[in-house]
Amino acid sequence: MADADPVGAEDRAVAPRRPDRNTSPLRATVSAYLALTKPRIIELLLITTVPALFAAQRAVPPLWTVLATLVGGALAAGSANALNCVVDADIDAVMRRTRTRPLARHAVPTRSALVFGVVLGLLSALFLWATTTWQAAVLAVVAILFYVFVYSLWLKRRTRQNIVWGGLAGCMPVVIGWSAVTGDIGWPAWAFFGVIFFWTPPHTWALAMRYREDYAAAGVPMLPVVATERVVVRQIVLYSWAMVACSLVLVPASSWLYAAVAAPAGLAFLACAHVLHVRVLRGRPAQPMTLFHLSNLYLTVVSVAWAVDAAIGLPVIGLRG
């Protein structure tokens, strides 16, 4: 439910390839519509959904619940991403790493992309309602609406805090996954929600430092565009500390296994963030993509650790709410 601007890897900083000349028209069309959903970003969102399913059950949840939540979540994320492509078509056409997206290169009519995004959103809500819980369906709709109307249409082009608050949409898969199992939202889900919320700015600002000229040309006031590198890296360090703190809040609701993974992973991330800070303070090339790539690995490792910890069902360190 997040773009590279809120959550996700901005297609891992790689623009989609143009269809091969020998590709059939049908295959090219299907590929273009699939690209609208930003599959790589969906992958990252689903990585944070699965641990919430396992943690809510504190065991391996029913396979049908897992599959239904992942399918419904993928539809919701695809809807949000497709609608974001409609809103950001002018921006994508300007930025080098996004100018080959379907709407930027006119591979899909704007109206068709809009209908496609709305239909995916409706399908996601109906599917989640029918197969999991009504709470999960409502949360999915809220995430889509927030991402499109609050982030894409309002915040992104107006404030340097765009990614901070816009990133809330990218945190929603965690609470959707938890509510799909229990029908409510326990405090561990909110703690991991905080991990993703504070993870998003360092992840995105590192990418934006690398592609600062792109954002500036498109008129998007990302923090690296409107502030000095010193301000940006200081904010990255602060958010990184908050992220790691939230990850450790989960320790009382987990076993020693999660703690043994989350603590060193957090230290590694903090070390990388501080190295970036020091490089900028000393006037050396920032090399922000190191942190960007590490951020993807960090979120994956912590998510997998939380899921495995819950699946094994080891005794928790403290009390679960």
Rank of each mutant, 00 (worst) to 15 (best):
Q235K: 07
V119N: 02
A136W: 07
L153T: 05
S31H: 09
G266V: 10
P102Q: 05
V278N: 09
V237N: 11
L250N: 02
A107D: 15
L114G: 08
V108N: 02
Y298W: 14
P224C: 01
T49C: 11
V244S: 06
Y239L: 11
I317W: 12
L299W: 06
L53W: 00
G186N: 05
R282G: 05
F269A: 13
T131H: 00
S179W: 07
W205R: 05
Y239C: 13
R12Y: 12
A305G: 08
I236P: 01
T49S: 14
S255P: 07
L126Y: 02
V237K: 10
A180H: 06
I176Y: 01
V164F: 13
N296L: 13
L257D: 04
T204G: 11
V66H: 02
V249Q: 05
A311L: 06
D20E: 12
R234S: 13
L276F: 11
F127S: 12
D5P: 00
A310I: 02
A218P: 00
V226C: 10
R40S: 12
R210V: 00
P202N: 05
W134F: 05
V142Q: 07
R21K: 11
E10I: 08
L126G: 14
S31T: 08
M209T: 04
V115D: 08
A265Y: 00
G283S: 08
R284E: 15
Q287H: 15
